[in-house]
Nucleic acid binder design. Structure first.
Length: 585
RNA sequence: GCCCCUGUAGCUCAAUUGGACAGAGCACUGGACUUCUAAUCCAACGGUUACAGGUUCGAGUCCUGUCAGGGGCGCCA
């Protein structure tokens, strides 16, 4: 927003330093930490350090301060809209005229509306593969982190200028599917899924998993697996039908979460191509085939000339059946055949880091030039208190629909208290927006590399640094604007003696574009989550200290614009996190 | 044994990527609703950034080592 100012200032400082005999100085702009006034800070330590390195005997901090003071004097005629300049602690601080800055930020936000913050600097097509659930099984809190992270990263990348293709990869084959079908045929034949399809599918799966412990049952499942492998038409038909149920169940969940996929890949689609690819790799001498004693493998370290870095990747079982690696290789290739990708991102938990590194390396060895465009976006697990991993065998898994139901019930109770006069339908909507928002925010407000510890109390705590707090600020802003209906939102000047609360709020709004770029570059929704909270906090502070509707007309005029702009930026940041911003709550 | 991640206030987490005084929330304590929605705000309390060295004008951030926790390392997914 201040590129022009930056380049002008940079030019002036360059000229001055050149006069001092300093060529090609390292100049950068930072934010001035003290709130109350805006400006650009130029640290002069790098320049002073340059001098020190060039042989001159200087005390760096002292010299930096001297330089800052000299430049300050030289800049007596301030260009553009700067009001004053200071030299402090080795920094040259250039302050903007408050009113001019404030108006520029607010006008920009209102002019660009929901496009404010959108960047066009990053272009290209990027595919993001995320969610990747197994059909016929449950959807639990661990899966939730993946979807929420992947979904938010997609929104942020789009907002940063990329064309994003959302991909999902479903585990629709394997022992778990056969177990499920066996139990269905034996104990549930003819049944149809209940309203909550994923829940119903999972119940049958968990029962199957228990029964599988009995050797007699296991033998039956193995027999069914053989029929499945032989492509018995009856079993294939059942598989397709039940897979569809699972898909519909997942779509219920994705709808609720606001996620949509552009391309769905099935494990079953890449199994045969994978086996064929393994045969090719054996022919080329890339893979070794000691079957039947041992499985087909690739000695990556031997090929790459490394030690203990890539290890060994097993690509086919000794009985010829496929593994994850068998299928991930052709899948990667398929993606680049179908789309012209500049980047292909895998949102998968951190435990698979080595595995994905091996897959990427193998594709490089196979000669695919795009292998360097593959990126593993790793995130850590969702554990239970005491760092206990959730396990369906232990019965410690928290299912998605149980969690959402409980959170929604609680949110609904609070809406009932706060706003009893609302219609039942809108109470329901608000409760769901609040509940899902809270769950999403919990997942997105910690770094990808950190373990999320799930506990019910924290998940259902709607106070403090949480989505409902941010949503509430948005509601308050909307409420003011609604009551101001009839008052024109005309462009007006901002005074130079703004309140601290107003200044803080405007400063945060101005940061959105930069944060979008950074968040996209790092695949970290966290930075947006932090900004959203800071914005809400600043707005609530403003709300308490600065009255809008009953302020005198000249003040009211610019504050109304400020409120409208703040509402917009809060809504945009929530949207980037995939969190709904309700109108009332 | 080797590799990766993590370690910051009692608890859960930030920290503009090496910059100015390490900041929030929760909890605890004390205050604020005849005023735009109190799902709010204000104040107070809380720190040897795991430890020890090193690099640097400057280190929570980079390097080395140690300790602690988690994860990964040939036919699981």
């Amino acid at each position: 927003m201040f590129e022009k100012e930056k380049s002008v200032v940079k030019g002036l400082i360059h000229n001055f330093l050149a006069g001092e005999g300093i060529e090609d100085p390292q100049l950068e702009f930072r934010q001035i930490p003290f709130s109350g006034e805006w400006g650009l800070a130029v640290p002069l330590f790098p320049v002073a350090a340059q001098m020190a390195r060039s042989g001159k005997k200087v005390n760096v901090p002292k010299y930096a301060q001297e330089l800052a003071e000299k430049i300050k004097t030289a800049l007596s005629n301030l260009p553009l809209d700067f009001s004053h300049v200071d030299a402090v602690n080795g920094y040259l601080n250039l302050y903007f005229s408050t009113g001019v800055y404030a108006r520029r930020v607010v006008d920009t936000v209102l002019e660009q509306g929901e496009q404010y913050g959108r960047q066009e600097v990053d272009t290209g097509t990027v595919m993001v593969e995320y969610s990747q659930p197994n059909t016929h099984k449950a959807f639990h809190v661990g899966h939730l982190r993946n979807v929420i992270l992947g979904g938010s990263v997609c929104r942020i990348l789009e907002f940063a200028g990329y064309k994003v293709i959302r991909a999902n990869y479903l585990g629709d084959i394997g022992l778990h599917v056969v177990k499920w079908m066996w139990n269905y045929l034996k104990n549930h034949k003819g049944e149809e899924p209940s309203a909550n399809k994923t829940h119903w599918m999972n119940q049958i799966y968990e029962e199957a998993d228990r029964l599988f412990q009995d050797p007699e049952n296991e033998a039956e499942v193995r027999a069914l697996y053989a029929r499945w492998n032989a492509k018995d038409p009856e079993i294939v038909a059942l598989w397709k039908k039940t897979r569809q149920w699972s898909l519909e169940g997942f779509n219920q969940i994705y709808d609720q979460l606001g996620e949509k996929f552009d391309r769905i890949y099935f494990e079953s689609d890449v199994e045969d191509p994978g086996v064929a690819l393994v045969e090719q790799m054996i022919e080329k001498g890339i893979a070794q085939d000691p079957r039947p004693e041992e499985p087909v493998f690739i000695d990556l370290d031997a090929i790459a000339g490394t030690e203990n870095e890539y290890r060994v990747l097993v690509v086919l079982r000794s009985d010829g059946s496929s593994l994850y690696a068998t299928k991930d290789l052709p899948l990667a290739i398929k993606k680049f055949e179908e789309y012209d990708l500049d980047q292909s991102i895998y949102v998968i938990d951190v435990r698979q880091s080595l595995y994905l590194k091996q897959i990427f390396k193998t594709l490089e060895i196979l000669g695919y030039g795009w292998a360097d465009k593959l990126y593993h976006l790793a995130y850590d697990l969702v554990n239970l208190p005491g760092n206990v991993t959730m396990s369906s065998r232990e019965g410690t898994v928290v299912l998605f629909d149980d969690l959402v139901a409980e959170a929604t019930r609680l949110a609904r109770k609070i809406v009932e208290q706060k706003n009893p006069e609302l219609s039942e339908a809108s109470k329901d909507d608000i409760a769901e927006d609040v509940a899902l928002g809270a769950l999403k925010y919990t997942m997105l407000s910690r770094d990808n590399t950190k373990v999320v510890t799930f506990d019910w109390d924290a998940a259902l705590d709607f106070n403090g640094q949480a989505a409902p707090y941010i949503q509430y600020a948005h509601v308050r802003a909307g409420s003011i604007l609604r009551k101001a209906d009839g008052l024109e939102l005309q462009e007006v000047d901002f005074p130079s003696d703004l309140e601290k609360a107003e200044i803080d709020l405007i400063e945060l709004m101005a940061r959105l574009p930069v944060e979008v770029t950074r968040s996209a570059a790092e695949y970290r929704p966290l930075t947006i989550a932090t900004l959203a909270f800071d914005l809400a906090k600043a707005f609530n502070d403003f709300y308490n200290t600065c009255h809008v509707l009953n302020a005198e007309p000249s003040v009211r005029a610019y504050r109304l614009r400020l409120v409208a702009a703040a509402k917009q930026v809060i809504a945009t940041s929530l949207n980037l996190l995939g969190i709904k911003a309700p109108k009332v709550m």
